[in-house]
């Protein structure tokens, strides 16, 4: 199954009530798959007139208490940022998917990781965070839909699956063995006001600065609580004296590089962040006491690099190897870079 299709199928199985989207390469399979499959289950799927409309339809549906999802790719996802900010402000759970392509601007339709900053630092206006999951396989594209809905509803916060063109388009084995995400009560939803309760309203507006600050502080508490959701994968770190850090597709390529490097006698390990927010900073700080240095592999000019450096806090040098514009590094490129770095460090 293609990554995009696995994600779409998982959405149905997880109990997604409604999907709103707009075509854009390389994620159109999600909308196509759901347009074909979802109505069979009596669920709603709509092709909106724009990404701006999609995200606001999501707002309306989430505000009425439904489990909702949208997906897009970089230029389209930029268009959604306003609505995402409103949803974060109004504390509406939803699952967002950005199948990252290389940019800026219209860029190319080939895979990229240039939206890391946008994904992990908020993305739209205002002071907010999304929970960000970075799948590295078709299986994770499916699994993170279940996880994403669960976390979104637990924290009443938008969750973003930050994928990329390659993970979206590639095919791998995928097993669907998860039960639908259990429904939790949403007493805040706007479904019509019965006589026994006061009205519900969904808003991100708090015009009094005192109230706005209180709201901001409450969100901040939530983001602190979200820190316990940090997830990552470690490959061969136990005895590693050098560490690769890479997520998503780059994480897969780096994994192979670890295999090749180990074969050549280099004691290299890999930390693959699965949640990009919260970021595995504590574990990286620990590993900084063990390794001589770190190298981030990214399909951008060095974005996660900054978070790794913050986590490591100057203890070891952190370098970056990136390919841009939709080009991909090969495992050999990474091993060459490693050999160069380690040679210099030893010399």
């Amino acid at each position: 199954m293609k990554g995009n299709e696995a994600l779409a199928e998982a959405a149905i199985r997880a109990g997604c009530d409604a999907y709103f989207g707009y075509p854009i390469t390389p994620q159109s399979e999600v909308l196509e798959y759901l347009a074909r499959e979802m109505p069979r289950y009596g669920r709603l799927v709509m092709q909106a007139e724009s990404e701006v409309a999609s995200i606001n339809m999501l707002y309306g549906a989430a505000g009425a208490g439904f489990r909702v999802m949208t997906s897009s790719s970089s230029p389209g996802f930029s268009l959604m940022q306003e609505g995402i900010s409103y949803m974060a402000g109004a504390e509406l759970p939803c699952l967002l998917v950005n199948v990252n392509r290389a940019g800026p601007g219209l860029g190319t339709i080939q895979p990229g990781q240039g939206d890391y900053f946008q994904a992990t630092k908020g993305g739209g206006h205002g002071d907010y965070r999304l929970l960000v999951l970075a799948p590295a396989s078709v299986q994770e594209m499916a699994d993170f839909v279940f996880l994403g809905f669960t976390l979104a509803e637990k924290y009443r916060n938008p969750v973003l699956i930050l994928s990329d063109g390659a993970i979206g388009q590639m095919m791998e084995k995928v097993v669907f063995d998860q039960a639908p995400v259990p429904d939790i009560p949403k007493p805040w939803a706007t479904v019509g006001k019965p006589a026994h309760r006061s009205r519900n309203y969904i808003t991100s507006l708090h015009i009094q600065p005192e109230q706005m600050e209180q709201h901001n502080l409450r969100l901040l508490e939530k983001y602190k609580a979200m820190q316990e959701e940090v997830r990552f994968e470690e490959i061969a770190t136990a005895d590693a004296d050098y560490l690769l850090v890479a997520y998503g597709l780059s994480g897969r390529i780096a994994h192979k590089a670890v295999d090749v490097a180990r074969h050549r006698g280099l004691r290299v390990g890999l930390l693959r962040p699965i949640t990009l927010y919260p970021f595995p900073e504590r574990r990286l700080a620990q590993l900084a006491r063990q390794v001589q240095g770190m190298l981030t592999i990214e399909l951008n000019s060095g974005q996660m690099l900054e978070d790794v450096r913050l986590a490591v806090n100057g203890r070891v040098p952190v370098r970056h190897l990136g390919r841009l514009g939709g080009m991909l590094p090969t495992p050999d490129d990474i091993v060459h870079e490693l050999e160069n770095i380690l040679e210099v460090q030893h010399a």
Binding site: A166, H255, K256, V258, T330, P331
Partner: peptide, 9 residues
Amino acid sequence: VISSPIVAE
């Protein structure tokens, strides 16, 4: 388990 789905050779 397949590590990288992208290889150069």
